[in-house]
């Protein structure tokens, strides 16, 4: 305490000087319009700067909720896309509806659900992704799974009540129909089980002029996932002179190492298509019988 008094006594004049300066400046900033405005502007600038710094830090704590929200919104918007609907030829159907989309779901082909990845692996030969949606939420086998950029990730292979197991594209048994974006030639995507960054595509005829960087999309005939979604790009062409088909290394579009939010897409007409397919085979078989 004594030292404090000594300190104050030693610098007494200086403190008085500061007091008068503060007094004068407070007069200056309080009673002069220009100085008042400029002073307020400067303090605003300062507090604004500090607030923005604080918000920068604070934002990190809300990133999770924010990304969840964006994912939900994406889900609802993706469901509105025209490409989810398979419109019959309206020229032959004289029904006018005031609603642009058939809300009863008669014509809706793809229904999207958002989901979160709860476990994931990339370093096994058979990689599975587990997501937090199951049969209670309407997830069934053979639905396609796409990441938040809408690049293909895998196909649902098993479901429990609240979780589903997804066979990742990084699975040696995986066999996905794909096409080259430029030419539309179809091929098959598989994985050799070695590098999680690259897939293998076979079945593209050598008449197609494939170059490095060509885009590979999902095929149009799949029952599991919508057509023309990104799978990857051609990273290199494997030399194979004995075959008439290319063997292509495809760099995956989805980053399998940090999957967090995904979409599960349901093809609402797949049941009908499968039924038709089955019945046709049966019919043809029956037709063939009498001939034998």
């Amino acid at each position: 305490m004594r030292n404090i008094f000594l300190f104050i006594g030693r610098y007494f004049t200086f403190f008085i000087f500061l007091v008068f300066q503060v007094l004068a400046l407070s007069f200056l900033f309080r009673y002069n319009k220009y100085h008042h405005a400029v002073g307020l502007g400067m303090t605003n600038e300062l507090t604004g700067w500090m607030n923005s710094k604080y918000a920068n830090v604070d934002n990190y704590f809300h990133l999770k909720q924010e990304s969840d929200r964006i994912h939900r919104i994406n889900d609802s918007l993706i469901n509105l896309l025209q490409s989810n609907f398979l419109n019959p030829d309206t020229a032959t159907k004289f029904v006018q509806d005031s609603i642009p989309y058939d809300t009863l779901g008669h014509r809706r082909r793809y229904l999207w659900r958002d989901a979160e990845v709860v476990s994931n692996s990339v370093n096994s030969e058979r990689n599975y992704i587990q997501i937090n949606r199951g049969s209670k939420q309407g997830v069934k086998d053979n639905m396609g799974v796409l990441n938040s950029d809408l690049s293909l990730v895998g196909i649902v292979v098993n479901t429990s009540d609240n979780f589903s197991q997804v066979m990742s594209l990084l699975h040696v048994k995986n066999n996905v129909n794909a096409i080259m974006k430029k030419s539309g030639n179809a091929g098959t995507i598989s994985w050799d089980g070695k590098n999680p960054l690259f897939l293998t595509m076979t079945g593209v005829p050598k008449s197609d002029s494939v170059v490095r960087g060509d885009t590979v999309l999902t095929g149009t005939y799949s029952l599991s996932f919508p057509p023309l979604k990104m799978i990857g790009r051609v990273a290199s062409i494997v030399k194979d002179n004995s075959s008439n088909f290319y063997t292509l290394r495809i760099q995956t579009a989805a980053n399998f190492q940090n999957l967090q939010h995904v979409f599960v897409v349901e093809n609402l007409q797949s049941v009908e298509q499968e039924k038709l397919d089955k019945e046709t085979r049966k019919k043809i078989d029956e037709l063939k019988k009498p001939a034998r």
């Binding site: 300066q21 400046l25 007069f27 900033f29 009673y31």
Partner: peptide, 8 residues
């Protein structure tokens, strides 16, 4: 009419 300016 500029309180504080010359005083400071």
């Amino acid at each position: 009419q500029t309180p504080g300016l010359h005083a400071a």
